[in-house]
Simulated scan of single mutants.
Amino acid sequence: MVDMLRVGVITSTHGLNGEVKVFPTTDDPARFKKLKTVYLEKGKDRICHEVESVRFFKQMVIVKFKGLDKIEDVQQLRQVSVLVTRDQAVPLEEGEYFIADLLDLEVRTEEGEVLGRMKDVLQTGANDVYVVETENGGELLIPAIDECRRGVDLEAGVMVVHLLKGLRE
């Protein structure tokens, strides 16, 4: 399991006073209001910043970090990920998982056949879709529904699925 979770990506500066526009990658952008500190990840560097203020504009979150008071202080933050520690994460319901925890899991059928590794999770309107990279480099798309997902063991690094008829073709 990962220790940090991405909740957004800084897209640009906002105004002249050190604010940035953040594209939220969380299901609940309102959670930014409760954040006191975040980590900004650029390359391999992670720097902790205190959140001074948060407001919302259209689909974006406008964030001001304490001590970054001029546009020059934040210009280099474009395309930087905004991370939170796992203890700051939104509590999950039973059977829910963070996408970051599902990536790279081995995906097997109920019969034990290894289908491949979890490459991505597509978020669609109706339900998420698991993208499994198969051994031969292809992709298998599996709907993230209870009928298909039979079990997830994060400790063992395995997801067990039931393939509905027609999914393999």
Score class of each variant (00 low, 15 high):
2 V>N: 13
2 V>G: 08
4 M>E: 08
5 L>H: 09
5 L>D: 06
6 R>W: 02
7 V>N: 02
9 V>R: 03
10 I>L: 01
11 T>F: 02
14 H>L: 02
14 H>V: 03
16 L>W: 05
16 L>F: 06
16 L>S: 10
18 G>D: 07
18 G>R: 06
20 V>D: 00
20 V>A: 00
20 V>W: 00
21 K>E: 05
23 F>T: 06
25 T>F: 00
26 T>V: 15
26 T>D: 12
26 T>P: 07
26 T>N: 11
28 D>F: 15
28 D>C: 14
29 P>S: 09
32 F>T: 04
34 K>M: 11
36 K>D: 14
39 Y>F: 12
40 L>K: 01
41 E>F: 01
42 K>L: 07
42 K>A: 06
45 D>E: 12
45 D>W: 00
46 R>S: 01
46 R>E: 03
46 R>V: 00
46 R>D: 01
49 H>W: 08
51 V>L: 11
52 E>R: 14
52 E>H: 13
54 V>H: 01
54 V>S: 00
55 R>T: 11
55 R>E: 10
56 F>S: 02
57 F>P: 01
58 K>E: 13
62 I>L: 10
63 V>L: 04
63 V>Y: 00
63 V>M: 05
65 F>Y: 07
66 K>Q: 13
68 L>C: 08
69 D>A: 05
71 I>Q: 13
72 E>H: 06
74 V>D: 01
76 Q>K: 14
76 Q>N: 13
77 L>I: 06
78 R>M: 08
78 R>Q: 10
79 Q>R: 12
79 Q>A: 12
81 S>H: 11
84 V>D: 03
84 V>R: 01
85 T>D: 11
85 T>N: 09
86 R>L: 02
86 R>T: 03
89 A>E: 15
90 V>H: 11
95 G>V: 03
96 E>K: 08
97 Y>W: 10
97 Y>H: 13
98 F>Y: 15
99 I>H: 00
100 A>R: 11
101 D>P: 06
102 L>K: 07
103 L>Q: 11
105 L>S: 13
107 V>N: 02
108 R>K: 15
108 R>M: 08
109 T>F: 00
110 E>M: 15
110 E>Q: 15
111 E>I: 04
112 G>L: 09
115 L>Q: 02
115 L>H: 02
117 R>D: 07
118 M>A: 15
118 M>S: 14
119 K>H: 15
120 D>K: 10
121 V>C: 03
123 Q>R: 13
126 A>I: 13
126 A>S: 10
126 A>E: 10
127 N>G: 06
127 N>K: 12
129 V>N: 03
129 V>F: 05
130 Y>V: 01
130 Y>C: 02
131 V>F: 02
131 V>K: 01
133 E>N: 13
134 T>N: 09
134 T>F: 06
136 N>A: 12
136 N>V: 10
136 N>R: 10
138 G>C: 09
140 L>A: 05
140 L>V: 07
142 I>L: 02
144 A>W: 04
144 A>S: 09
144 A>R: 00
145 I>N: 12
145 I>C: 10
146 D>C: 07
147 E>A: 14
151 G>H: 08
154 L>A: 11
154 L>T: 12
154 L>R: 09
156 A>V: 05
157 G>L: 08
157 G>F: 07
162 H>W: 10
162 H>A: 15
163 L>V: 14
163 L>H: 06
167 L>Q: 11
168 R>K: 12
168 R>N: 06
169 E>K: 14
169 E>L: 13
